[in-house]
């Protein structure tokens, strides 16, 4: 049985290779936030509290489009809904922990913390899941805050001709293909893609959330009609 400390360090070692990519994502976010009208302090506060890249990008993008605040919040939560799936998958491993621990751990829930922890616990039962998980999550969180700060402070020095804002859709593109598992998830993505063009001009910044919901409906209908 590893000690809390050695399990934490094991998590840190496993997540270390992912830190550069994660950090560049944070820098891009810091720049995008400032360009959208978020002062560096607000950008860093958001990274500290929200700690979810896709959700934060959606917030600043909608803010830049003058979307209605309530639409921004709702869209952000729909974008973040995928975290509930990680929550469900990891729940059995943390079933016996106290409520206080579960609340603490859920803050750090990301695709990476979830995937690494589940893989490690399945391979090695002697590891304490919570300390390993924190060993993955805390460095990611620190790197996220730090790189957001760097990106937002130096955003003014980035020449606009570089078109760095394009990094955002590129990152999401790579994530997108890793979430397409079968015909129905592909259909949901395709319908949402078409919808995002069709609904682009909806008022109050509703385009994104409407396109996403239409995509989900499209995928579900395809599954119901074709899949049986």
């Amino acid at each position: 049985m590893g000690s809390a400390r050695s399990d934490f360090l094991a998590g840190f070692r496993d997540v270390a290779p992912a830190l550069p990519a994660f950090g560049s994502f944070g820098i891009v976010f810091g720049i995008a936030a400032v360009e959208a009208g978020f002062p560096p302090v607000d950008a860093v506060a958001m990274s500290t509290m929200v700690f979810a890249g896709t959700v934060q990008f959606a917030v600043v993008e909608l803010w830049a489009q003058d979307a209605l605040p309530v639409v921004i919040v709702l869209t952000a939560l729909v974008v973040g809904l995928r975290y509930s799936m990680y929550s469900a998958s990891i729940a059995p491993y943390f079933e016996r922990l106290s409520t206080r621990w579960r609340w603490l751990l859920s803050f750090f829930l990301l695709e990476v913390t979830y995937a690494l922890t589940v893989a490690r616990l399945n391979a090695d039962e002697a590891v304490s899941g919570r300390w390993y998980y924190l060993g993955v999550g805390v460095p990611l969180w620190s790197a996220w805050i730090l790189t957001t700060a760097v990106g937002s402070v130096y955003a003014v020095d980035v020449p606009p001709e570089l078109g760095l804002g394009f990094a955002v859709p590129l990152i999401f593109m790579a994530l997108l293909f890793s979430t397409v598992e079968d015909r129905w998830t592909a259909a949901a993505g395709a319908v949402a893609a078409v919808g995002s063009v069709g609904f682009f001009d909806l008022p109050f910044g509703l385009g994104l959330i409407v396109a996403a919901l239409v995509g989900v409906a499209g995928g579900r209908i395809a599954e119901a009609v074709v899949g049986r």
Partner: peptide, 27 residues
Amino acid sequence: DRLLRLVPPAVLAALVVPDVVFMDGSL
């Protein structure tokens, strides 16, 4: 569970596509 699995691809596609096909607010 079925609906939740469809959320990520739908959300991500809706985030990506406008950033690529729209320029200065028009297609």
